[in-house]
Simulated scan of single mutants.
Amino acid sequence: MLVSPMAERNKKPILEVLADYVDETNSAFGLELGSGTGQHVVHFAKALPSVTWQPSEINPASQQSIRAYIHATKVTNVREPLSIDVSQPWSQWAGLGKGCCDLIVIINLLHMTDQGLEEMFKGVGQLLKPGGICLAYGPFAMNGIILPESNVQLDKMLQARNPEWGLRDVEELRQLANTNALWLEQMHEMPEYTKCLIFRRRQLSEW
């Protein structure tokens, strides 16, 4: 089992936000894009038993870690991880059908996505049911400004690794959402200068 100290720190505050958008009286299907070690998805699964979780990860070592966490925690509402490349068209996302998701979670992935960003938002817009939500967590720029200095340095480090990487501006994401039947409903300030962005899929009557 791989261990991410960052995931261990942020899984609780992310869950606190996520729980407000889950109706525990109804069953739901949740997809996590880029599940990493698996620490988040099993933590969410234990706290939100009405949600059946579908982790996904392109890295084979991370897939093994997710399976190990599922086995170790004995959660029964987490499926086997799927291999999903978010830079590919959503129709190639391991056979997931249009409108199959009540919620989608994306944690610390947007700033490490290059040409796949538009494809990812297209996929989210297609896979979410009308009224469904997408929670995107991470550090973001606001109106072209990155704060504090630690996030400025993170942005520089990411771009040194890949010029297409870097902290995404909330306005850029809002516009991508709008073109894919989503709207930015709420923005939550989180610890360590991060945010949770809540995108909601428009109802059919609004689109």
Results as ranks from 00 to 15, higher is better:
77 N>E: 14
85 D>C: 04
161 R>Y: 13
148 P>T: 10
200 R>C: 02
24 E>F: 03
196 C>V: 14
176 L>Y: 00
179 T>H: 15
68 A>H: 10
188 H>V: 10
139 P>S: 13
191 P>G: 08
104 I>R: 03
164 E>G: 11
1 M>Y: 14
173 L>G: 09
152 V>Y: 01
97 G>L: 12
194 T>V: 03
146 I>D: 01
165 W>P: 08
24 E>P: 02
175 Q>F: 11
162 N>V: 07
99 G>Y: 03
19 A>M: 06
103 L>V: 09
134 C>G: 05
167 L>Y: 12
133 I>C: 08
108 N>S: 07
26 N>M: 10
112 M>F: 03
169 D>N: 08
184 L>H: 09
79 R>N: 08
132 G>W: 01
175 Q>R: 13
67 R>S: 12
154 L>P: 02
158 L>P: 07
85 D>Y: 05
205 S>A: 13
97 G>Y: 03
114 D>W: 00
117 L>P: 09
199 F>L: 07
68 A>K: 15
9 R>T: 13
42 V>D: 07
102 D>Y: 08
17 V>F: 05
87 S>Y: 00
206 E>F: 05
109 L>T: 05
115 Q>K: 06
52 T>W: 00
38 G>A: 08
137 Y>W: 02
157 M>T: 12
135 L>N: 11
148 P>S: 12
27 S>D: 08
109 L>K: 01
176 L>P: 02
122 K>Q: 11
129 K>D: 14
74 K>H: 11
26 N>F: 12
145 I>Y: 03
196 C>G: 15
111 H>G: 05
149 E>W: 03
185 E>Y: 05
40 H>Q: 13
